[in-house]
Nucleic acid binder design. Structure first.
Lengths: 338, 338
DNA sequence: CTCACATCTGGAAACGTTTCCAAATCTTAC
DNA sequence: GTAAGATTTGGAAACGTTTCCAGATGTGAG
């Protein structure tokens, strides 16, 4: 039916073993044989069966990428980066979206990952329980994390506490004291370490500046534009006075705040300063001041770390990504200073 | 090393053939044997090697999803739907992003798809040349298309011309005559059939109503918020008069128009009506009137079509998806009618 | 020219399933 | 009880590679 390595061997006048060596590049082959094999393969239109190769060698040329959802900007950016990098390296990418329900996480961890189809795993922003981490490591394949740190797994991530502190600091430096924080919350987010860290950074900056944190301005919401939009409308429309600045835990949330402010007739930044974290592609459109953490780039880097380990290099170690501070038009001095 | 079907067979006291039949469900097995096998497999923690199974049977339990990028809302929604549906069915999803460069498309079509790792392919919004379609079909696996129609491939899609016509009609029905259309263009989009179709629908509605189309209001731009935002700012700020309504070829573009209008101090819908197509998740936030085509659902349906074909059902046929008209707050009668 | 050693090659045994085939066992009807 | 047929079973040959091993061939030093 389809042309196999045997046909190539016959046509090139060498053994199957030599064909395999010539094509895979491992093992010694004389220049003459290699050329014959390459020619024969090209002529016959040979495409290797990766299944057979995987079965025989244990190497699958396939990397699994696990993430909660593909519908949020951060995740789709990471995925885009990873996909491009893997394609370039000749690897397949198997996508696992773990979704909201723990059932899906379990089936991915328990069934899918164990099927011996993966050379390695990129785990993005998964907040795993200790048992789940154990399941993940049971796969016996290298794992690189992205975002939320995973115990025992090399992870690439920004320093959430420090970045949040600097974002808040920026607002304080401009003269703001009435600052609210839109935070993620365990109620909405499974991966709760991240929102907590960013909240801690916020509180640290406030404390350092000696500004009291008003509990009603520490607002939990989900990590989406729509969620933050609704929450911000309540916050900014509150009769008990509104803040002069908002630090949103993510750019998507910050965009929700900006649109909510506009709807309420508030001018950003004159009436309200807004700052986020992420580097969202719409940052320019909304003039958003933010810390850009280049998630697409992180996707590429995570893949590179993984592949270099597969190529026999030393196991990668966790690395801190340095976000870039991008000042745009959403932050300025508070209203009374105008 | 890892537990194989042979170990299970031994432990259950039956042959490997029986274990295979019991676990895969194809072929007859007595209830007694089945139970023994199941128990033994559970006890040993057996997980089948999908590579070995694929090699032996030709079935891979793996579906390829090809799309241009994962970073636009429509695509990530389709992907999310497809991913969930496949996970539920026990299938792996291999992701191919074909990206901007033809090189990536070629390497996907030429190398990746031929590796015999896929049972079927979902091709999303790919505008393929005849040779590329031929390459795709050379894989000899069922293909289901989504979005752009592909010659010789069953495809799920909305009627772009008709939907665009109805969207324009809605504006005309409200009394608008000064209507601009933000269209995609071949310059920015590889998959050009879709923007052209939507433009044709626009022109049809205008012609039917006897309204001349002003060429300078037929504005090509790319299918993104940022692109439409920039374009709309030029369009709406033009000294030669501005339209009272804009039909944007996609919701992301419509959102770009709305944000641009707000920046220019125009109130939507009092000064400007805006309508889009897609059903973007932020439609509610921006009060966007649109035709919702539920892409996530389409992803699920495309997978179902494919899987039912793999289960031996008849090859699926192309189907028209009926979008739902959602009226929100971005459209109203034109200014002079207030 | 010979020896030691490195490089190249082919045969054949994996890898872990599925499935064809034929044999064994179980039904059911008479 | 027997025959015909259906159901269940195990043996073994695939599936298409990789890689171990041993033998063949080449290279350079003495």
């Amino acid at each position: 039916m389809s042309v196999s390595i045997r046909d190539v061997a016959q046509s090139a006048g060498v053994s199957m073993a030599t064909v395999s060596r010539a094509l895979s590049g491992r093992g010694n082959v004389s220049e003459r044989s290699r050329q014959r094999v390459l020619d024969a393969a090209a002529e016959l239109g040979f495409v290797p069966s990766y299944n057979a190769a995987s079965l025989a060698s244990g190497r699958t040329r396939n990397i699994g990428v696990m993430l909660p959802t593909v519908q949020r900007w951060f995740f789709s950016s990471v995925l885009e980066g990873a996909s491009g990098a893997l394609l370039e390296a000749g690897y397949d990418l198997t996508l696992y979206t773990t979704g909201e329900e723990p059932g899906q996480r379990q089936s991915v961890l328990n069934d899918f990952l164990l099927r011996q189809r993966l050379d390695g795993i990129v785990a993005v922003s998964l907040e795993l329980s200790p048992e789940e981490v154990e399941q993940l490591l049971r796969v016996k394949r290298p794992v690189v994390g992205l975002g939320g740190p995973i115990e025992g797994v090399a992870t690439l991530h920004i320093d959430d506490v420090e970045t949040a502190r600097r974002a808040t600091q920026h607002l304080i430096g401009l003269g703001h004291r009435e600052i609210a924080h839109l935070s993620g919350s365990p109620e909405f987010e499974r991966d709760f370490a991240l929102p907590v860290n960013r909240r801690v950074g916020f509180e640290t900056a406030m404390n350092d500046a000696g500004i009291p944190v008003r509990p009603e301005w520490l607002v939990p919401t989900d990590f989406t534009v729509a969620g933050a939009h609704a929450t911000a409308k309540r916050l900014l429309g509150s009769p008990s006075g509104r803040p002069t600045a908002v630090f949103a835990a993510s750019d998507e949330m910050a965009i929700g705040v900006i649109t909510a402010a506009q709807e309420l007739g508030l001018r950003v930044p004159y009436d309200l300063s807004v700052i986020g974290i992420d580097g969202h592609e719409l940052g320019e459109v909304f003039g958003l001041t933010t810390f850009d953490q280049a998630p697409r780039r992180q996707g590429v880097d995570a893949v590179r770390m993984l592949l270099s380990q597969l190529d026999g290099d030393a196991a990668p170690v966790s690395g801190i990504v340095e976000p870039e501070f991008v000042v745009r038009r959403s932050t300025s001095t508070p209203p009374q200073a105008h």
